[in-house]
């Protein structure tokens, strides 16, 4: 049962990261594009709570860290998504969250994940990180994630509720 659940989550994460690299990033949308993984991590954390949110965020980030084509250090995205998964999970009140709550959590999560990644990258001497680039990344990611949130979050939450026991253990 546990193995099955882990396999399922892993399959979701891999599918999402593959879709990000092959479909979403290919579109070359103005300002950047959505970060589908963030929306999925938030949706999962809102149902599963902070503990599961953090664990899910960690493995989601790690998958994104090693999925080609990237060249930042492995662990950077894992760190950022862990924090976001934990924080979003703390807002899990057990009942269906309203669409407004969902959207604001996704927006907050997008800001947090970009800032965390930028801060870590800056510490590690990543030449890609600059004030301008960070603002650019923030604008693009937040706008598109908020647009995606009303469609993706209920879908993921419903799936998570159906397939897994509800509530914190």
């Amino acid at each position: 049962m546990i193995a099955q659940r882990i396999a399922l989550r892993l399959a979701v994460v891999i599918t999402v990261v593959l879709a990000q690299t092959t479909v979403i990033n290919r579109m070359h949308l103005p300002l950047g594009g959505p970060d589908l993984l963030l929306v999925v991590v938030v949706a999962f954390a809102l149902v599963g709570g902070s503990q599961r949110g953090a664990v899910f965020g960690f493995f989601a980030g790690l998958t994104a860290d090693v999925m080609p084509p990237t060249y930042h250090f492995a662990g950077e995205l894992a760190f950022a998504y862990t924090v976001v998964g934990y924080l979003a999970g703390m807002l899990d009140a057990g009942e269906e969250s309203s669409i407004a709550t969902t959207i604001s959590v996704v927006a907050g999560g997008s800001v947090a994940v970009v800032l965390l990644f930028a801060a870590l990258g800056d510490l590690l001497g990543n030449a890609n990180i600059s004030g301008g680039a960070t603002l650019h990344a923030l604008a693009g990611t937040v706008v598109y994630d908020v647009v995606l949130a009303p469609f993706v979050v209920p879908l993921v939450s419903a799936a998570a509720r159906r397939l897994e026991p509800v509530g914190p253990r």
Binding site: H28, H72, I129
Partner: peptide, 15 residues
């Protein structure tokens, strides 16, 4: 070209 990198738009990479 099979895939495009991103990392929120910070990186510009392809597979």
């Amino acid at each position: 070209v099979t895939a495009y990198g991103g990392a929120f738009g910070f990186e510009s990479t392809i597979s």
